[in-house]
Design a binder for these strands. Structure first.
Length: 203
DNA sequence: GAAACGATTATCT
DNA sequence: GATAATCGTTTCA
């Protein structure tokens, strides 16, 4: 039996490394939510790294420093940084070391379980759309999983939101590209995604 | 207090 | 592809 990975919670040491490395390592892992009591989960297929104070695109860039919003980025690796953007929630996983602001933005997941629940959260006021759109984009996946600012600074080895091991993508399938939507450091290649996966966001 | 600013998304053409 | 809607945080007066 090869290729089968029994899901297990990711340990804190997994997150204690530079964001650029963590962003790549998080591809293929499982993001599980039990928000509201029922479980929904997806496989991470797209991430972006915000690597530290020297990263001008980071919310914790040197010129900004620590603020009310970005405080969670200075916390322990393996905790969540959740913030609001254009009316949507975005989920980051804090990386590196406590006190050093760096994080990985989860941009897309491939839904694995809890489909009815995710559809209901994603399209509460209309007929459900395509399942491929449940986890496509940072604002969409948080909506489908019920992730809100209440989970800011939440440790990601504990309900109602945690990460588990999952099958790593073949190295030849991992693509690297500039980050989406950033205006500063627009050419830094810190976006990682599984090439060809239909759940990866566009631009 | 007021205004500008996004690590976005949906809905057009 | 272009544009409107989105809303808390941040910044400035």
């Amino acid at each position: 039996m090869t290729g089968v990975v029994t899901p297990a919670p990711l340990e804190r040491a997994f997150f204690a490394r530079p964001a650029e490395q963590l962003a790549r390592a998080m591809l293929g892992t499982r993001l599980v939510s039990s928000v509201g009591g029922d479980v929904a989960a997806g496989r991470i297929v797209e991430t972006e790294a915000y690597v530290g104070p020297h990263d001008p695109a980071s919310h914790a860039a040197e010129r900004i420093g620590r603020t009310r919003r970005n405080g969670a980025m200075f916390g322990e690796p393996g905790t969540a940084y959740v913030y609001r953007l254009y009316g949507h929630w975005c989920l980051n996983v804090v990386s590196d070391a406590a006190g050093y602001p760096a994080a990985v933005l989860v941009r897309a997941i491939a839904p694995l379980s809890g489909f009815p629940l995710m559809r209901a959260r994603r399209w509460p006021d209309r007929e459900p759309g395509r399942d491929r759109d449940l986890g496509r984009g940072p604002g969409n996946l948080t909506r489908s999983l019920g992730i809100t600012g209440a989970l800011d600074a939440h440790p990601l080895d504990t309900p109602p939101l945690w990460l588990e091991t999952g099958p790593a993508p073949d190295a030849s399938r991992v693509a690297v590209a500039p980050r989406v939507g950033v205006t500063r450091a627009a050419d830094w290649p810190l976006r990682f995604f599984i090439r060809g996966d239909p759940h990866v966001s566009r631009r």
